[in-house]
Nucleic acid binder design. Structure first.
Lengths: 143, 143
DNA sequence: GTACATTTGTTCGTATGTATT
DNA sequence: TAATACATACGAACAAATGTA
């Protein structure tokens, strides 16, 4: 049973698209919208909430940038299913940093929006770049 | 050898806003636009390149999402200055993953757009969340 | 303290292009 | 082919934040 906010107030000081994003995020977090499930179309959401299509698109873009949703042109928007993470052992003397990929890297590695990359540096200056949503960097209990 | 794009072709199959983003990114990478420097206003860029303001905003939004630019309402857009990274030693038996922060986390930690967070898990289940652009996770050469 | 100019933010309207079913 | 859905792009208007005279 849900008592969440189900309508949007255009007179609020909070932008309409932020309200919609929060509403949708809450539905994901509560399990009401399961990973893999399809969202209503932009036009549908636009009409359902009585807001402009730009606002719907902005809300979805925000959630995409957080890695919560993923959109396919001509098909629709889904709640993103995060892939399983593979453990990578950080070498002695190694290090790792995270950052957002450039557009080119995102294209070449076929990354969803809102997915960072991990730069894993070995002790000899070698660098490995991996999708952050598929990676967990570990250090073993004892060497 | 590639000649840099210095103008924008509205008939190209590459979207206008992507062309502008690439153009600006190249100017940053080449050092022509230094970190900390102010971009021309959206209206100025719109007129200079003969494109709509929406396209300019989309280009800048793209660069923000990559952590390249940062924008302040009412003031302008700057080339982002990345902070210095602090080393965090990954504990034996610990692990770390990277992801994008939620809107709330971004607000609470005062993170720029396009900045991931690192979840640093200790061996005892404790979790530390740090801005990825200020953090380097290391493992010492020998324990 | 006010008023103003500048700049970014939000929203709507409209049109066209591209991808999928 | 047709219908549906997302992507790009233009214009326009007003709101909100900032800095300055």
């Amino acid at each position: 049973m849900r008592l969440d906010i189900v309508s949007i107030d255009p007179r609020s000081h909070t932008p309409v698209y932020v309200q919609l994003a929060e509403l949708l995020r809450r539905r994901v977090e509560s399990g009401d919208l399961q990973p893999g499930s399809l969202l209503p179309s932009e036009s549908h959401l636009s009409q359902e909430y009585g807001i402009g299509r730009d606002a719907v698109r902005a809300a979805i873009a925000l959630l995409r940038s957080e890695g919560v949703m993923t959109t396919t042109k001509g098909r629709g928007t889904w709640v993103r299913e995060a892939p399983r993470r593979t453990d990578i052992e950080l070498a002695p003397g190694g290090s790792t940093v995270a950052r957002m990929p450039s557009s080119r890297e995102r294209r070449e590695m076929d990354l969803d929006e809102g997915v960072p990359v991990l730069e894993i540096h070995g002790p000899d200056g070698d660098v490995q770049i991996r999708p952050a949503d598929q990676t967990r960097v570990t250090r073993p209990q004892s060497d």
